[in-house]
Design a protein around this nucleic acid. Structure first.
Lengths: 150, 150
DNA sequence: TTCATTTTGGTCAGAAAAAGTCAAATTTTA
DNA sequence: TAAAATTTGACTTTTTCTGACCAAAATGAA
C-alpha cells in the first residue's frame, strides 16, 4: 500500500470521526507515517482540493497547523454543481453568467454577488498575465463558492 | 496553544470587559503568562496596531504602563481606510487581519468575511507566481471592499 | 536643585519552530 | 515503454520566542 493512500485514508477517517474538521501538525504526521513532511502537502493537494469538497487552511511558525475542512454537499447542491462546472479555467464573461444565475435563484444575496463579481472581474485581476488569468479566476471563484457552503 | 495567542485572547477579553480601554504593566503581564517581557511588545505590535483599530500609549519609569485603546470609526470611513492601508501589495496574513478586524466591528457579515477571505487566501491564489501574488491580492481586496461601499 | 539610582518600557537581531515550494528521482499504471 | 503518480530533499518563508542592550521617568540623597 502506498504511503499517500495510507495517509489519505487516515485523514478521511479522522474527518469522519471529527465531523468534518481535522487539524494536524505536518511534521508530526509525516513522522507517524515515516515520510518527509512535504509529502503531507502532496497528499493534501492531490486529494483534498476544493473539487473534492475540502477547504485547507494553515499557519506557519511556532504552534503552526494544517486544517482540513469538509464542506457539506447534501445542501447547496446547486452551488457545488457550479463549482464543478467552473472547471480549470473561467473567463470574465462566464464568471458573470454563473454569478448572475445564482443571484437570480437567490443562492446569493445582492451584496455577495457584487463582492464576488468584484473579486473575479478583469479589473481586479489585470495584473495577472493573460495566459494564466482564467486559471486564477477559476480558483478564486471556486474557493469563494465553497466558503459560502461551509 | 501558543503564548502569543493566549496573551492576545486575554487582552481582547479585557478590552471587551473594559469597554475598549485597558492598561497593563508589561513585566507583570509577562510574568503571568510566563514569557519574557519583550514578548508583550511582540503581541501588541503584531496584533494591536492602528490598522487593527487600536491605539497604543505607554510610559516608562516607576508606575509605568502600556495602554491599549480600541477606536471606533464610521463604517465606510473605516473601509476606505483599509483600502488605503492595503496599498500595492498585501500578504495573506495581513489580509486576514484586515478582514477579521472588519468582522469584529461588524463592518462585514460573517458570510461576507468568509467569502472575502476565501478570495484572497493563498490557496485560491496558488497559481499566481509568488513575485506578483501579493500585488494581485491587494487588487482583489480593494475591488471587493469598494464593491461593499458602492 | 542636581544627579545618581531604580524602575519601567522599547528595540533589534538571532534562534527556533513550524509550513510552503519546486524539481529531480523513482515507482506505478495504462 | 510512455505517461502519470509518488517520493524525496534542498531551499524558502512565516511566525514566534528570547535575551542583550537601550531609553525614559520617578525618586531620593547631597
Amino acid at each position: 500500500m502506498k504511503s499517500s493512500d495510507l495517509i489519505a485514508a487516515f485523514l478521511l477517517d479522522s474527518l469522519e470521526k471529527a465531523d468534518g474538521l481535522v487539524e494536524l501538525q505536518r511534521n508530526e504526521l509525516a513522522q507517524q507515517f515515516n515520510v518527509v513532511p512535504s509529502q503531507i502537502n502532496y497528499v493534501i493537494s492531490s486529494r483534498f482540493t476544493p473539487e473534492h469538497g475540502y477547504i485547507i487552511e494553515s499557519r506557519r511558525g511556532g504552534g503552526g497547523y494544517i486544517r482540513i475542512r469538509r464542506v457539506k454537499q447534501d445542501k447547496n447542491v446547486h452551488i457545488m454543481h457550479v463549482v464543478n462546472a467552473v472547471g480549470n479555467r473561467l473567463n470574465a464573461m462566464n464568471a458573470e453568467v454563473f454569478l448572475r444565475n445564482m443571484l437570480d435563484y437567490s443562492y446569493l444575496t445582492p451584496q455577495l454577488f457584487r463582492v464576488m463579481r468584484a473579486a473575479v472581474s478583469d479589473n481586479a485581476l489585470s495584473a495577472i498575465p493573460l495566459d494564466c488569468r482564467d486559471t486564477v479566476r477559476a480558483e478564486i471563484m471556486k474557493h469563494m463558492l465553497l466558503s459560502v457552503i461551509a
